[in-house]
Amino acid sequence: MSSIPSQNASKPLWARYTHASHFRTAAEEFDACKLGFWLFLTTEVLLFGGIFCAYFIFRTLYPGAWKEGSQLLDWRFGGLNTAVLLISSYTMAASIYCFQKGYTRRAQWNLIITLICGAAFLFIKLAYEYIPKWSVGKRPGALFDYPFAADPHLPLWWSVYYSGTAIHAAHVIIGMVLIARVLYRSYKGHYGPTHYTMVEITGLYWHLVDLIWIFLFPLLYLIH
């Protein structure tokens, strides 16, 4: 650990990577990291499980409010955001492929596109959904001030909508921070064909963000 043999000094960082000493092999470390992260992903799914549960309960109790609420959302923005996230998921997976093959440049561009998609998602969400809706009084719970509600439980719909999408948006932001970190480290030469654990894990996180949206989109925008 303390000194790297001189013939290695010219190699990029990823080729010099040695696995942590408590693992037997790098493959075992990689496997362990993935298992650990999958376990973390289960916790993320269950975190959103609370939102899904609230949705499920109140949708069943107040179908009228849910029908009215979903009609107040524009599926075009939801659909657009779904497409944006799906494309970003693809570029994320493609970037892992490029790192595996050693096409570092292309991998980095893929990461950059992923970041742009993430930003686009947030922009659409904020500029075309949150701000217009909030400003006309379509707000959660006691903040509700929209005069044209037909169903008395409409505020609750907005509570579920804002809680769910806001927590999802927070995950998008965290994912973007992780991707930016991976991008930065890839410029330092940390990732290559034999070592790309962090890219893989960041990718898993990003796909989870996508996965949650795949369910939130029909639940909020399409089901009525």
Partner: peptide, 9 residues
């Protein structure tokens, strides 16, 4: 937000 508040449904 009212998810746990009966007054808000």
């Amino acid at each position: 937000i009212g998810i746990f508040d009966p007054a808000l449904g």
